[in-house]
Design a protein around this nucleic acid. Structure first.
Lengths: 249, 249
DNA sequence: CAGTGGTCTAGACCACCGC
DNA sequence: CGGTGGTCTAGACCACTGG
């Protein structure tokens, strides 16, 4: 009757270390949804006993998952499944000076939403078969009355179907928490490719800048807990407002 | 007569963990030069015995210094003091297509070198008293015959005096290894602030681009092992060749 | 106070390296 | 082969959290 879910009693590590194997087993249980994001997993001592392994070994396995960003430890409270990226992280690349105040979360307006066929690259990124559908959005973000970022967002479609049927006028300013609430998708990691280009006529009009104006371009791929790409996004903003700090080593 | 240098036998941790205190002691001994960059420190077992502490505790202390980038472990060989940043790391921000081939280390030419008084900001960054001198350089980097990066470099002066007396025509293409060889300065970490601007007339001429051409600007502060800023650098390059990938989380 | 993660010990054995 | 770091154990005690 003890140990409800055991994972190791019968499976010696193949060519791996034992804690590496334990980490893999726990990772599967987390991705499979055994504990929801934000929930606490069982105490170390219980997991260790349940897997028939020493406490230190289990701690080493948990540390691996913590360093992957899948778990968070809170001293005296427990070990918790990560709850995902907050949201406004696009502003990390820009400094918009509206009228002296500090950075605020920009207001969002969806300019356009449509369902269309995925391009080859998109299907590839999302791991979808050729000919699949995606949800394509255009979105304008403004601080005060001033437009500052123009975004083009692509989402894989069976997954985000709930959004396609909703009224974009009621969407939140932050998409990632909404993705989680509405579609159960947790954004866990993103990769941003930065470059500079110039605005075409349509883009310039939306951002209230002259055509040909220099702009910074952020090409983002966002990934869920299972490390599957679930969002492609291109963000454009005034190049002179671009400012980003990178640590080397 | 055993244990040549002991550090812990008489000093219980104040409010810190024991491994944190051990890490601090080892950090001091490293910065003080007890082991040179690239050298191996004594084996874990010896250090642990010498400090009167369990092996696991010493390993925890070493792990801290490894995560700080001060030490590197090599399985079966030993634990080594970090030997510093390689060099060509500026190219991580640009993709210059010269004629199909991949990225090569650009050739360097020093356009100008002078000793001058430090600005207030410079003295501040370097931790120098007001009125100190610095070594100021201008440097052009080229791939093939094509100029691609224009750099303005400032170095604190008692430290880099050996460079002020040397012939810039014989300098290496990579500065950081040369800093280490000639001045004993190990560059360990850097912080790069990216932004966008336009070339003035003089800059444009050096880079063989039109004045006002869009360019990316990298403002770098480089730090030594003791985390002291020892180089300020501003790098300019064609904005449309800029390309950088950032990981979020 | 009971329950959690954090630190520490003293040992054992394994995996990699170079001679 | 001897020496190094890497893994693992079975325990003890400390420090933080919350009721």
């Amino acid at each position: 009757m003890p140990h409800a879910t055991l994972t190791a009693t019968d499976t010696p590590p193949p060519g791996q270390s034992r804690y590496g194997w334990l980490a893999g087993a726990l990772r599967s249980r987390i991705l499979q949804g055994e504990w929801a994001p934000g929930d606490a997993i069982p105490p170390e001592a219980v997991l260790a006993k349940g897997c028939g392994v020493a406490l230190g070994t289990m701690r080493q396995a948990l540390s691996l998952l913590v360093s992957e960003g899948l778990l968070e430890r809170r001293h005296g409270k427990g070990t918790f499944v990560t709850s995902g990226l907050g949201g406004a992280s696009m502003m990390r690349f820009f400094r918009f000076r509206t009228s002296g105040e500090l950075q605020a979360t920009p207001r969002s307006r969806i300019l356009n939403m449509q369902v269309r066929l995925a391009s080859e690259d998109e299907a590839d990124s999302f791991g979808l078969p050729a000919g699949s559908s995606v949800l394509a959005l255009e979105r304008l973000r403004s601080v005060g009355e001033q437009p500052c970022l123009l975004e083009s967002i692509v989402l894989p479609l069976p997954l985000f179907a709930a959004l396609a049927d909703s009224d974009t006028r009621h969407w939140d300013d932050l998409l990632y928490p909404m993705f989680q609430r509405v579609c159960g998708v947790v954004i866990h990691r993103a990769q941003d490719q930065l470059s500079f280009t110039q605005l075409n006529a349509a883009q310039a009009q939306q951002l209230e800048l002259p055509p040909g104006h220099p702009c910074a371009r952020v090409h983002r791929q966002a990934f869920d807990l299972a490390n599957q790409c679930v969002e492609l996004r291109i963000t454009l903003g005034d190049a002179f407002s671009f400012e980003y700090t990178a640590q080397v080593r």
